[in-house]
Design a binder for these strands. Structure first.
Length: 418
RNA sequence: CGGGGUGUCGUAUAUCGGUAGUACGCUUGCUUUGGGAGCAAGAUGGCCCAGUUCGAUUCUGGGCACCCCGACCA
């Protein structure tokens, strides 16, 4: 993409209504725009990173047998009444609205109910199980207080996977596989070392669940970490002796840390399947409720945590896996039109080699271009200027390390496609 | 939802009961060109509704919005 086509502008200063580092950087770099409290738009660069995150998650979900679908945001109250999750007394997160005829509707804050109801049409035999269905879908939650930029918003996309298994044993096997898949997701987006599988309370579904918590001062949660076992406890179960029994963790060996919940996995059991009539016939012809689990990741929150943790004083620093572009081709101003030609040629060759390039073809001074480039956080900057023209090699600077090398086109393509 | 705070050009800020200023950005011109250039000339602003006052952006009340702390967080 030519940067002259990119309509977003960078800013020197962060808006005064944003305190969180992730929102400040993402807004300054033109990745996102704040629409209102807890509601953000994704601009071209932000969308590219966001979709990279989705793809990492998608690949890992597909590896464990996940099948993607897309459910509606608008929800029918009848379905939710069956599990007692329509009334405002039980669920305060609803955004509710009405049809012209006065009938009530809700904007989904999660999707156990509609998907379970849907599956009654698809699942009737033990031969139909297991099923692992997931989606990337907008959730709406009427949070009493949105905060911390993209960390806690009222409208957000969630990857939610729901597992439908014959029994607890089959469920547990998948639960472990999904846990491993989550670990790979966090590893791939650069949070492997700072993200801990965390034992937590099960909420209204089961006694315990697991969260994936990334250590981060901007977080809302407090966890207690066993570094050797790379396992943690949420504060909410810290004083529960049964948890130590179940996990083998020793209270005295744990260190406390602030953290952000980047994912969670829940055993739902038969709570939803029984309420919504999702059962199957086993080999003996008996009707058995389906055993369920749910598995969530918030991709935008994940992106925010990466922005928060991997950035430096000059701006964002994306890992290659989720950077909006692989290469930032920075063409410096020059009266020599060969510089421009060379940049165009490099852009063409890199693009043809399948490398995503943002080409700064604007008429701007070097300082401004470098500052913008640092702020964007694209992993590799390739400079084309009179200097590099004379040298016959391009200047290549890694954003994360500042490491600089000089490469010809073929060396550069070789390096990037290796 | 309890407590606290803030609303001034696009952004960040200053000042003031009496002509609203500065920086960045934007427009025009000249110079400059490897780390957010210089000079000159421009355009753009008081959240909304009442009240007090000769006069309100400023004071008072209400509303709305936003931020922070706490509570909440399937």
């Amino acid at each position: 993409m030519k940067q002259s086509h990119l309509f977003t502008k960078t800013r020197r200063e962060a808006p005064k209504d944003e305190v969180s580092k992730n929102a400040q950087l993402l807004i300054r770099a033109g990745y996102i725009h704040k629409e209102m409290a807890g509601v953000y738009d994704f601009l071209p660069l932000g969308l590219r990173t966001f979709e990279k995150v989705l793809n990492v998650i998608r690949e890992e979900m597909n590896k464990i047998g996940g099948v993607e679908l897309h459910l509606s945001a608008l929800q029918n109250p009848e379905t939710w009444a069956k599990t007692d999750r329509w009334s405002d007394e039980n669920v305060d997160a609803w955004f509710k609205t009405k049809l012209k005829n006065g009938a009530e509707l809700g904007l989904g804050f999660t999707h156990e109910e509609p998907l379970t109801a849907l599956m009654t049409e698809q699942i009737s035999s033990y031969k139909d199980l297991p099923v692992y269905a997931y989606q990337f879908q907008s959730k709406f939650r009427n949070e009493e207080r949105a905060k911390s930029g993209l960390m806690r918003t009222r409208e957000f996309v969630m990857k939610d996977l729901y597992s439908f298994s014959k029994d607890e044993a089959e469920h547990t096997k998948f639960y472990e596989q999904s846990s491993d898949a989550y670990g790979r997701v966090f590893e791939r987006v650069g949070l492997g070392d700072t993200t801990f599988k965390t034992f937590a309370s099960g909420g209204s579904f089961s006694k315990y669940s697991h969260e994936f918590q990334t250590v981060c001062d901007a977080g809302e949660d407090t966890i207690y970490i066993d570094d050797e076992r790379k396992l943690a406890l949420n504060k909410e179960v810290y004083d529960d002796p049964q948890v130590y029994e179940a996990t083998g963790l020793v209270k005295e060996n744990l260190r406390e840390a602030k953290s952000v919940e980047v994912g969670n996995i829940f055993t739902l059991g038969t709570r939803f399947s029984e309420a919504l009539g999702l059962s199957y016939k086993n080999e003996a012809g008996e009707s058995v409720p389906v055993f369920m689990g749910s598995y969530g990741i918030g991709p935008a929150r994940l992106m925010a945590v990466v922005a928060e943790l991997l950035s430096d004083d000059k701006g964002l620093v994306w890992p290659e896996s989720i950077a909006p572009f692989r290469v930032h081709l920075v063409e410096l101003p020059s009266d020599n039109e060969e510089v421009s030609k060379e940049a165009a040629e490099l852009y063409r060759e890199l693009t043809e080699a399948g490398i995503e390039v943002l080409w700064d073809d604007r008429e701007a001074r070097a300082g401004e271009k470098f500052a913008d480039s640092d702020l964007f956080g694209i992993p590799l900057r390739v400079v084309v200027s009179e200097k590099t023209l004379a040298a016959g090699k391009f200047e290549c600077v890694e954003r994360a390390s500042g490491h600089t090398t000089h490469k010809s086109i073929s060396e550069l393509i070789g390096h990037l496609t290796a």
